[in-house]
Write a protein that binds this DNA or RNA. Structure first.
Lengths: 261, 261
DNA sequence: AAGCTGAGTTCCATTATTTGGAACACGCGA
DNA sequence: TCGCGTGTTCCAAATAATGGAACTCAGCTT
């Protein structure tokens, strides 16, 4: 119905505000939130008050800033323990990263956007900018494209509908016309590559993580820089990557948590 | 104003429901939530719908159950990265646990209740029931009492006001009359002991973690069973425990996140 | 196959809450 | 003291939440 993440009356707005505040990734002043939120001063003020009151945010009196609250930390941790692929995937991701000495990303999808669930950077691995909990577009990342390729048709349709098609580099897909054929190719090959589509000089190779019934529950990728390795060279890790993806998938065969499109 | 965690209109109710669902720790049926929530059928139904719609919960069509949603996982992870003592405390807690071969807990406080932030059980350590994200009362745990002892007077007053005084064992404090004197003692000694007050046979020794300005930002404890060790014996780890607490505190000297009382 | 039961969903007039423009308070530097 | 940028409070109008009751649907029983 509504493609917007917003909506749903008061609760939707409150969660929207929560998302904004936490998304800053640091303590924020009222006016900063006001600037980026679509709500009028009084409304936002009341919203922040409610969220603080509820323990989802905390207000630092001295500095006059809002930060994430303990209740959010607690509920979020609980949710993480239950629904995050990281809990069962981390050991395998760590083993892979250690084995090949390259950075490994673990991702899931939320409404057509990639959510980085975890990352492992081994000694000497390439330090990527991804941070767990961050979101990125799906159309320009290896982990995103591979999930799009293997998800249900209707979910994919909805996800593609919601893409922003922002052009991060000259190689970024700018619309379904070029993306859809690549997705088909990805389905054939069983892997997706990020050819500097999200960031100049950064490449990756991603495999889908399939739980019970072949349903995609996330994806895993090896990320590096073109200065360290070419796309061809990264290909030599293909067996290791697909093996790890399969291991995690086996572990998550009875995965009860749906990947939200 | 209101001591209840509930309140604050629609948003409060929605968060309440979210808390309930996630608190189950597993996929739940509508009727299960209905049973424990104070809301009428229609209201709860709408609430769950809204939360699902917002990505905070996810609904499994096949099984007809609700689980934590990806959006909650994402926001929660973000919050965790920012505000959890675990992020900076874990390495030290791990070192301590490895050193003494006993289980170590890391905790913070939310509205007078202890939230377990992280735990480390080394090879051969005593496996405790605490799980990160879980809550326990403050009046009967080492980590809780030590935070109560060292927090601001007004915060302590509010926190003590909110205690349930549930008697888990014969040794549990049943009211402020006996707890307050012990808190004073704890302040003197600089440590708190749990003398089988939460669970028969389980004891612990806890130290406060103090950030900048001596403000308590959490606590750390060594937990074991009376079958493994006596209260006296656990005391030999005192230097190690206080050293670790100090290390974490130094790391968190510029800790920007308030410990919500 | 009709009837029953329990779980989940929908309806809608009533009621309570949210809304946000505007006025107000506060701290701070000039 | 004035002015400015922030943050807070008010309150009548507008909107959204409420929940009892009726309904649907699947599975089970007689």
């Amino acid at each position: 119905m509504n493609t917007q993440a917003t909506g749903d009356g008061t609760v939707g707005k409150a969660l929207d505000v929560l998302d904004i505040v936490v998304g800053f990734g640091r303590a924020v002043r009222f006016s900063e939130v006001l600037e980026v939120s679509p709500y009028p001063k009084a409304t936002l003020h009341r919203m922040l008050g409610t969220l603080t009151n509820q323990g989802m945010l905390a207000y630092d009196d001295d500095r006059g800033v809002y930060v994430a609250g303990m209740r959010l930390v607690r509920i979020g941790r609980h949710a993480w323990n239950q629904s995050s692929l990281a809990v069962l995937g981390r050991p395998f991701a760590e083993a892979l990263a250690e084995d090949i000495k390259e950075t490994v990303h673990l991702a899931q999808m939320e409404r057509g956007r990639v959510v980085f669930i975890d990352k492992v950077t081994p000694e000497g691995g390439f330090p990527t900018m991804a941070r767990s909990g961050r979101r990125s577009p799906a159309h320009c990342t290896g982990v995103g494209k591979v999930m799009l390729a293997f998800m249900d048709d209707d979910r994919r349709a909805a996800a593609i509908e919601g893409q922003t098609w922002e052009a991060f580099t000259p190689k970024t897909h700018q619309g379904p016309e070029t993306l859809l054929p690549e997705l088909e190719e990805i389905r054939d090959v069983g892997l997706a590559y990020d050819r500097e589509e999200h960031e100049q000089g950064i490449i990756s190779m991603a495999a889908p993580i399939k739980g019970g019934g072949g349903r995609v529950i996330g994806s895993i990728s090896i990320v590096t820089s073109v200065n360290r390795m070419s796309l061809d060279e990264i290909g030599k890790y293909r067996p290791a990557l697909t093996r790890t993806a399969a291991q995690i998938g086996r572990e998550g065969a009875v995965w009860p948590y749906p990947v939200v499109s």
